[in-house]
């Protein structure tokens, strides 16, 4: 079982302990949007994730949608939408979603295939402070493209920590919410996967290295046994993680989500999809 994200998170915290502190004073009083090319935060993250590989301007490949002023630092909706179709010849293989100034910047790594129809995912992020959000697409030919957006997390009492504790017996509960009332086979369907989970943060100042925070580290959705969405995620996602994405039901089948967290808990949710049969909405 891969623990890539957890390892990565720990490495990132260590990295920030070294570099983050050094640049903290520079960023502390910054109110205007800085130059994304000159970000001191991005350089070490970029090195660690992509080494010396060239990263091209992603405006024709993918777009990042976010409010420039985040209303609630604990719940900031974000959409990453491909600007190209997924074809066997050329498709987006992976999308890396990065909140540059969070203690663990890699919020999610999403895998797509030519069958995804369109590489698109919506989720919700936490913000420790004002930050660039970067989405890097890795193409089937190995090329990298990036879209960037500057986000001012709201001031006041808004903060990344979730307000309420989730009762233990509800952790791992899941729900599918569909955008449409019924589905048609072979047509893309938009669905939201909701997961009840504290997604505990190592942002916490009482972070104890011996006590691993409990956060979701992987999400895998299949339809009739075929992959739909596969993601390695992190505590830069809001509590009660949410993912909205497309899938194409080729015929009757089971939509299944499997979620694993850092406490090695595994949660599963499934439902059978039949054309024309009313779907659960809200």
């Amino acid at each position: 079982m891969t623990k890539w994200t957890s390892r990565f998170a720990v490495a990132m915290i260590a990295l920030l302990a070294v570099t983050g502190m050094a640049v903290k004073s520079a960023g502390a009083n910054e109110k205007a949007e800085p130059d994304p090319q000159k970000s001191q935060y991005w350089t070490p993250i970029r090195q660690m994730m992509f080494g010396d590989r060239e990263i091209l301007d992603g405006k024709d490949i993918l777009k990042v949608y976010l409010n420039t002023r985040a209303d609630d630092a604990s719940t900031v909706p974000v959409s990453v939408k491909a600007q190209i179709d997924q074809t066997p010849e050329r498709y987006i293989k992976t999308v890396y979603l990065i909140v540059e100034r969070n203690p663990s910047p890699a919020a999610g790594v999403f895998q797509f295939s030519p069958e995804s129809g369109r590489a698109q995912v919506e989720t919700r992020l936490r913000f420790e402070e004002y930050s660039f959000v970067r989405a890097v697409a890795e193409m089937s030919d190995g090329k990298l493209y990036m879209g960037t957006k500057w986000v001012k997390a709201a001031g006041g009492c808004s903060a990344p920590g979730g307000a309420n504790r989730i009762p233990a017996h509800l952790v791992g509960q899941m729900k599918f919410r569909f955008a449409d009332d019924t589905l048609e086979y072979k047509k893309p369907a938009l669905v939201q996967l909701m997961i009840r989970h504290p997604n505990e943060s190592a942002l916490s100042s009482d972070f104890d290295a011996d006590k691993v925070p409990q956060f979701v580290r992987s999400v895998s959705v299949t339809y009739a046994g075929k992959p739909v969405l596969s993601a390695e995620v992190d505590f830069s996602l809001s509590d009660n993680p949410s993912f909205r994405f497309f899938f194409v039901p080729e015929g009757e089948g089971e939509l299944q989500a499997v979620v694993e967290d850092t406490h090695d808990k595994r949660y599963m949710h499934r439902m059978t999809i039949t054309e024309g049969v009313p779907l659960p909405g809200s």
Binding site: K24, A28, N29, E30, K31, A73, E128, E129, Y130, G155, A159, P160, G161, G162, A163, R165, S201, L203, S204, S205, D206
Partner: peptide, 16 residues
Amino acid sequence: RTMAVRSRPYLNALRR
């Protein structure tokens, strides 16, 4: 509990 989670972001925002 909230103090543990939010102290740092609150201090950073106050300095900002």
